[in-house]
Amino acid sequence: MSSPVRSVLLSCLAWLAGLAPLSASAADADAVKRSKSERDVLIYSNIAAYNWGPIIEAFHAKYPWLKVEALDLGPAEAFERYYSEASVKRRTADIIAVAAPDTWMRFIDRDQVEPYVTPEAAALPEWSKPVKGVYTISADPVVLIYNKLLLKTKEQRPDSLDGLAAQVRKQPMLYAKRLTTYDATSHPFAYALHWAYVHQRGQKGWETLRTLGPQTRPEGGGATMVEKITAGEYVGAYFGSSVTFLRRMKEEGREQVLEWALMRDGTPVMVRGMAITRAASHKAAAQLFVDFALSREGQIAVGKGGLTPYRPDVPKSAVPFLTFDSVRDTVGEANVILVGYDRTMLQEQNQFLSQWKASYGLKR
């Protein structure tokens, strides 16, 4: 028996015995074969169809027999729908891809992650693969967004949250109840990014939020924010989703009205989790999708969809918007706030939200 054949045979035997993962080349060949009887992959996410478009198109070009259905749900809804369907053994998500670290940690605790090891893992930074089977599809920064017809000077449109707070103190009537951000009390994404910002900046972070909070009307969705800023109901937003904003600004001709900036004193970057689920019925197709989304080719497609690729081998020139490296280079590594899987986020949730609501003048 030749050495290569013997190597593959031993790898397969070890995999069947549960002693070692199947080698990347053998695993891929097996997944391709099995996927042809599965035919499709179902994804629950909080990613819009226009963001998914380039990713699904590129994946389908590589695996034309596979159909991808990606539902755009809220982060909490994606998990709750999965739990409900899996409990009665109905067809449910093969993959979940959402930006909500707290709900991901609860999902992990319920042992609902398929512990799949992708052959792309070695090319990915450690922070992007927090536990076995959970990966990062994109690392999306939140940004400052302004209506530049209302905030006409550069001074009124700072590139830091502290700078925005200084402007609010200087010109309170200009900003009075005309700022917006995500509502941390009703959105896991929003809670996580506000918590991460304060966790890194400490008391200074709370002081900034206490300045901005009384002049802010929180919203539940990024699309609503963009519409209301464009219309002039709000003069601007902070912690706005780059995923929602950048592509819509470019494709809908909003550049004449809107301007955006990364926050140089601390830019939260949402680590958008992705995993194959325990209850997945099409695991081979799901495996191929995860491998593709994490590959260099897949990450370029991620960038073309308006999400933020983070592989070091994806240059800014390959995508129309941002890369993780370009964000880091703009604000400095010390000012990148990774919104990751910190267990303290779960432990402090009630206390944090109580303090957050007080800062925003909301009922406890």
Rank of each mutant, 00 (worst) to 15 (best):
A14N: 10
W15T: 08
A17C: 11
A20M: 13
A29L: 15
V41R: 00
H60S: 12
E69Y: 12
E69Q: 14
D72T: 10
A76M: 10
F79I: 15
S84Y: 11
S87N: 11
K89S: 14
V113C: 05
V117D: 03
A121S: 07
P125H: 03
E126R: 06
S128Q: 00
P130L: 00
G133N: 04
G133W: 01
Y135R: 02
P141Q: 04
L151D: 09
T153V: 10
T153D: 10
E155Y: 09
L161A: 00
L161S: 02
A165T: 05
A165G: 03
V168H: 01
R169D: 13
Q171K: 12
L174Y: 07
T180V: 15
T185D: 14
F189W: 13
A192S: 14
L193T: 06
A196I: 03
G202R: 02
G213V: 12
G220Y: 12
M225N: 12
I229M: 11
A237S: 15
Y238C: 04
G240I: 12
T244I: 15
R247E: 12
Q256T: 11
M263Q: 07
P268S: 00
M270G: 06
R278S: 11
F289H: 06
Q299N: 05
I300V: 15
A301V: 13
K304S: 09
L307I: 12
Y310I: 02
P315I: 10
F324C: 03
F324D: 04
G332V: 03
D342P: 00
T344P: 00
E348Q: 01
Q355C: 03
K357N: 06
